[in-house]
Amino acid sequence: MEGMVEIRWHGRGGQGVVTASELLAEAALLEGKFFQALPEFGAERSGAPIRAYTRLGPEPIQIHYAIAEPDVLVILDPTLLDTPGLTQGLKPEGLILVNTTASPDQVRSLLGATAGAVYTLDASAIAQRAIGRPIPNVPLLGALLTLLPLVALPSLRESIQRRLQGRLSPAVVEGNLRALEEGAQAVRREQSPHNGIPSFREPSPAAVAQAAPVWSALDPGGVILRPGSSIDYETGSWRSERPVINWDRCTHCMLCWVYCPDSCFSVQGQRLVDLDYTHCKGCGICANQCPPKCIEMVPELVFQEG
């Protein structure tokens, strides 16, 4: 598997993470190269952090497992930058490409990353201009191919056309092609230049070790005996939009409290007092139900950019 490149994509459901991994694979097909695009889903839905993997190489790829030690990390959502373990396993000579308005140096300090060369691109803004929606995958593909000629840009253009034509309007297909070009030109690099792609190696046992309790110690049938254990599952990371309450207009009717599927609203003395963003998934049901319309869904990016 000499010459194989392994890319790990991090983003949220709905940002085109899986599509990006597949577009690259389809471009490799057009060039007669060998490839694999593999998504990693849980039970989560739109907005939840997800991963996808792409492998590209000059020989048939026979392995089928998650990429633990990638050559390339592409991060489609800047709100994920402080996720623990995001850069885990990245090869020291690897490459990190991030959709953000921040500079590569700011990203490095946010990531706390010691490995890899960091590149940034405001891919959401490019996509917003080009197709009217902030879906960052295509501009990032343009940037990636500028940094690493994994496939030729025209091959990727063709894979985009093949996938989108007939499904989306000609204007949107054209917009995506413009976004690809713009992404290829606008990528910003760190002070130190990138050193090229390391050669493939099998993941170290430590990198693929699955932390798990001994099977015989588990409660049979998966019964969970600790009440309220879902508090440990911080579903707030799934959120792409945040409900913000205009307290001046809140009538304390409690319909948000009734409808919230995650019990995020707290009530004291018959008044609504707080909203738990650690578990709010940003589903927007509260905003939809609120009779005086005092709950607004605000994009998370607004909060991250201060």
Partner: peptide, 18 residues
């Protein structure tokens, strides 16, 4: 107690082993 909860990839195989 919670019965029949989601059992993700780190646990499912262990319960089958049981």
């Amino acid at each position: 107690a919670t019965f029949g909860a989601n059992d993700d990839r780190q646990f499912f195989a262990l319960h089958k082993r049981q």
